[in-house]
């Protein structure tokens, strides 16, 4: 298979998913704060990789790239806030 940046990114996404899967608690109580925060941060790192390398935003002009990066940061902040409030 072609070993280009796309494939490397796919590998990283795969590893990220597997890590989240394993650190997630399976018991039926609210998960402790830290694993949850780690899982959310991993998810948004994956989002960033997809935006930049799969959707090719890294070659896009700044206003468009900025718009999506701004969405990413605000969505991540919103989710982290609500998550911390609820834990």
């Amino acid at each position: 298979m072609v070993f280009n940046s796309i494939t490397i990114v796919w590998g990283l996404l795969f590893i990220g998913t597997t890590i989240s899967w394993f650190i997630a608690p399976e018991e039926d109580y609210l998960s402790p704060l830290l694993p949850g925060i780690a899982i959310i941060l991993i998810a948004f790192l994956k989002v960033r990789l997809i935006l930049l390398y799969f959707m090719d935003l890294r070659v896009a002009p700044q206003p468009w790239r900025g718009l999506f990066e701004a969405w990413m940061i605000s969505a991540c902040a919103l989710i982290l806030t609500l998550y911390t409030m609820g834990t």
């Binding site: 989240s20 998960s31 959310i40 998810a43 948004f44 989002v47 997809i50 989710i79």
Partner: peptide, 18 residues
């Protein structure tokens, strides 16, 4: 298609993991 993937990547931990 990447957006569909991206949205699932956030939805998955929120629904299943945390």
């Amino acid at each position: 298609w990447h957006m569909v993937d991206l949205l699932w990547i956030v939805l998955f931990p929120l629904i299943y993991l945390i």
